[in-house]
Amino acid sequence: MTNTVKGLVKALALGLAAACSLAAISGASAEELSLKGKRIGVSAIGTDHYWDLMAFRGIQDRVKELGGEVIALDAGRKDQQQIAQLQTLIAQKPDAIIEQLGNLEVLNPWLQKIRDAGIPLFTVDTATPHAINNTTSNNYNIGAEIALQMVADMGGKGNVLVFNGFYSVPVCKIRYDQLKYVLTSFPDVKIVEPELRDVIPNTVQSAYSNVTDMLTKSPEKGSVGAVWACWDVPQIGATQAVEAAGRNEVKTYGIDGSPEVIKMVMDPKSSAGAVAAQQPYEIGKTSVDNAAKYLAGQKVPPFTFVPSVLINKENAAEKGKPFLDAAEKAGVK
């Protein structure tokens, strides 16, 4: 064997070794995430909605996957209970706290106390200056996409019934503001005043009767073109009301991607026009990854967006299925 060949082999071997070690390094950094011996407190305002439940589960499953211990707290939609749980949680001194949704005005002083106690705070879908990272969907995108889909389906003109009961919830504010911004380019699309108010609980029933009343008030076909809500539970009631009133020219639009609504959009006869489907389970998991990275001393950005998918009448059959499969896998109908 000549020297050159020897050298070549040597170089190849070295290169191979280097490549292997590089792969090993990158593999290690992916596997490096670990929460072994760590306790992570998780506080959610409620889990009665599909989105909330899936995100809550995603957080818990991921913490366990990474070998950590979860202290999981569901406040059952009671502010008092969530505050009491957070207060006790601070005393428990977990390695990190992940907080999921709730009333920001109520929460902020307590989130501040979490930071004052030296506990790293991460949030899911809750923009607050006290969090190290907020993991959420890109609600700016979602808001614009669903609004544009609606305008396109309406042919650029007509009246919209808008549910605006939760403007105080940050993600709803963004989506509503995006709707308004899109409509500035389409002056012939008008929001019917006064706006409707979605409520919790009895969201579906209340939306059903609100929309029925409005359709009765404007009986001519075509006088209402669409119904919009910043989440998709009012959309269920609205869709049922439109269909019950036989006003199939009206289409409904919402955000979140509850399996029930995705099925409606997939049904060509249903009045559900489109829904922006988020990946709440992934969002929950990602927030845990961010916490794990932070605890391992890595840098974490102030927010992380998990992609969402606009499901409309055209793409529903193809794009909706993966979401329904995920829901079925999680045992949620």
Binding site: D79, V106, P109
Partner: peptide, 16 residues
């Protein structure tokens, strides 16, 4: 006492 604890008045007091 509630308003002090929640820094606000919130719906849903009936739950108590």
């Amino acid at each position: 006492l509630t308003v002090s604890r929640l820094s606000a008045s919130t719906p849903g007091s009936g739950e108590l």
